[in-house]
Computed example of a mutant assay.
Amino acid sequence: MKKIKGFGGRSYGPSKGEAKGIDLGSIQKVQEEMAKKLEQLEESFSQMEIVSTAGGGAIKVKATCDYRIASIEFDDDLLQDKEMLSDLIVAAVNEVLQEIKKRRDEEMLKLTQGAISL
């Protein structure tokens, strides 16, 4: 490669004695390992359950970390007030979605922090 002279007399580009390149093989290996770990993590999200409640426990929503609602339970007393039932279901589902995002972010952070230390 050719050196380029910059303003102020600085030279840019490779110089003799510098490493002639980055070991692309090791970078590719790390990238493949990271992709495999990421795939395993995505698969594990379907097994991680999050439970959220609303209305002092009158509504209970259970979901997995792959954003699937597993069940919604509610007190029979709420059947008398459809509007309240609807509001509490929405609140509990929104809460469980926030918890899922938080758990996914935590798990991704663990994975990426492990990759940085490689």
Rank of each mutant, 00 (worst) to 15 (best):
T112R: 01
F74S: 03
D66L: 12
L111R: 13
E106S: 11
T64E: 03
E73Q: 09
I72Q: 00
L109P: 01
E95N: 13
D87P: 09
F74H: 06
Q80T: 06
Q47R: 15
A92L: 03
V61A: 04
D77S: 13
T112L: 00
G56K: 06
A92C: 00
Q80A: 04
A58H: 09
K60S: 05
V61E: 00
I72Y: 01
D76H: 11
M108L: 15
L85N: 05
E49C: 06
A70W: 00
A63G: 08
Q98M: 05
R103G: 13
K60V: 05
I72K: 00
L88I: 01
I89K: 13
M48Y: 15
S52I: 03
K60W: 02
V93C: 03
D77K: 15
K82Q: 09
V61S: 03
D76P: 15
E95R: 09
N94H: 11
R68C: 07
K62G: 03
S86W: 02
E49H: 15
Q98I: 03
S86Q: 07
T53S: 09
L88N: 07
M48E: 13
Q80N: 13
I72W: 00
M48W: 12
K102T: 14
G56N: 08
F74C: 02
Q98K: 12
V90G: 01
D76L: 00
M48F: 14
N94A: 05
L79S: 07
E83H: 04
S71R: 02
A63N: 06
S86T: 10
L97S: 12
Q47I: 01
K110N: 13
C65R: 06
Y67W: 11
G56A: 00
K110D: 10
I100H: 07
V93I: 10
A70E: 10
D81A: 01
R103C: 15
D75P: 10
V90M: 10
E106N: 08
G57Y: 12
A91P: 05
K101H: 13
I89G: 05
V51I: 11
M48I: 15
D76S: 15
R68V: 05
S71H: 00
E83G: 09
K102R: 13
K102E: 11
K62R: 08
D87N: 13
K102L: 08
V93F: 06
A70K: 11
R103P: 07
K60M: 14
G57Q: 09
I72N: 01
